[in-house]
C-alpha cells in the first residue's frame, strides 16, 4: 500500500514538473525581442513580424550544400528570357553593392529583423539584362542544383538583393557566402544560398523545396509554409 502511495506521489510530481517546464518553455518563446516586434507595423500596414514567428538576434545556419567554386572563378549569370544576358564576377558585384537593412523570416519559425546586408538589388541588374515582356518568373539557381522560384513582380522589388556581406563582414559560407539571394518578403528558403545564376523564365518552375511539399509562393504573412 505504501508503495502504491509512493508511486502516486511520484507520478503527481512528475506531472507537475512537466507542466512547469512547459510553461517555462512558453515564457522563453515569448521573449522581449518578439514582444517588441509584435507591436511594430511595416509601411504597407502589415505587422512587422508575420504570424507564428519569433525573433532571433542573428541568422541561424540552416544547412545546404555549399558551393565549392573558388572566389576567383565565381561568376553569377543573369540570363534566360532577357535581351542582354551577362555574367558578373564577385568584384564587379561588390562595386555595385549598397547597404540595406532587411527583415528575413524562416519557415521553421524564426525571424531576424533589421539585418545589415550589402548587396546589389536584382532590379538594378534586370535593368541591364532587359527581361523580355514574356518573362513572368525568376529562378534563383544555386550550387549543386538548388533552385527557388519567385514571381517576377516580387523578384524585382527594390529590397530583393544579391548579397555578399552581412553585418559588415564577408557573408559566411554557412549563410551562403560568397553570394546569396535575399528575398525579404518571402520565406527564407526562396533566398537561395551560394547563388550562381538568375534565370528569367516565362513559365513557373517550382524549385527544390517547392517540389518537396513546401508552398510555391511562400508569403510569411499568409503563413504559406506548405503546399
Amino acid at each position: 500500500m505504501a508503495r502504491i502511495e509512493q508511486r502516486r506521489r511520484f507520478i503527481q510530481r512528475a506531472l507537475a514538473g512537466t507542466a512547469v517546464a512547459a510553461l517555462g518553455g512558453y515564457y522563453f518563446l515569448s521573449d522581449d525581442l518578439t514582444r517588441a516586434a509584435r507591436a511594430e507595423s511595416r509601411k504597407d500596414g502589415r505587422p512587422r513580424l508575420p504570424p507564428g514567428q519569433r525573433v532571433l538576434s542573428k541568422l541561424r545556419p540552416m544547412g545546404g550544400e555549399p558551393s565549392d567554386t573558388p572566389p576567383s572563378r565565381y561568376r553569377v549569370k543573369i540570363y534566360g528570357e532577357v535581351e542582354a544576358p551577362f555574367e558578373l564576377t564577385l568584384a564587379e558585384l561588390a562595386e555595385l553593392s549598397t547597404e540595406h537593412s532587411v527583415d528575413v523570416h524562416c519557415v521553421t519559425g524564426w525571424s531576424v529583423l533589421g539585418a545589415r546586408v550589402k548587396g546589389v538589388p536584382l532590379a538594378k541588374l534586370a535593368e541591364r539584362a532587359k527581361p523580355r515582356t514574356k518573362a513572368r518568373h525568376v529562378i534563383f539557381e544555386a550550387a549543386h542544383g538548388y533552385t527557388s522560384n519567385v514571381p517576377i513582380a516580387e523578384a524585382l522589388r527594390p529590397n530583393v538583393l544579391l548579397a555578399q556581406r552581412l553585418e559588415g563582414q564577408a557573408l559566411p559560407r554557412a549563410h551562403g557566402g560568397p553570394l546569396r539571394a535575399v528575398v525579404p518578403d518571402l520565406y527564407f528558403w526562396k533566398s537561395a544560398k551560394w547563388l550562381e545564376g538568375v534565370r528569367f523564365v516565362e513559365h513557373d518552375e517550382p524549385g527544390y523545396w517547392e517540389t518537396r511539399g513546401y508552398h510555391n509562393h511562400a508569403d510569411p504573412w499568409r503563413e504559406e509554409r506548405y503546399g
Binding site: 573558388p70 572566389p71 576567383s72 572563378r73 565565381y74 564577385l90 568584384a91 561588390a94 562595386e95 564577408a170
Partner: peptide, 13 residues
C-alpha cells in the same frame, strides 16, 4: 585560391 575582390579586400581559400 587567392582572390582580390577589390583594392581593400582579399579572399584567401
Amino acid at each position: 585560391d587567392v582572390y582580390r575582390a577589390s583594392d581593400t579586400e582579399l579572399d584567401i581559400t
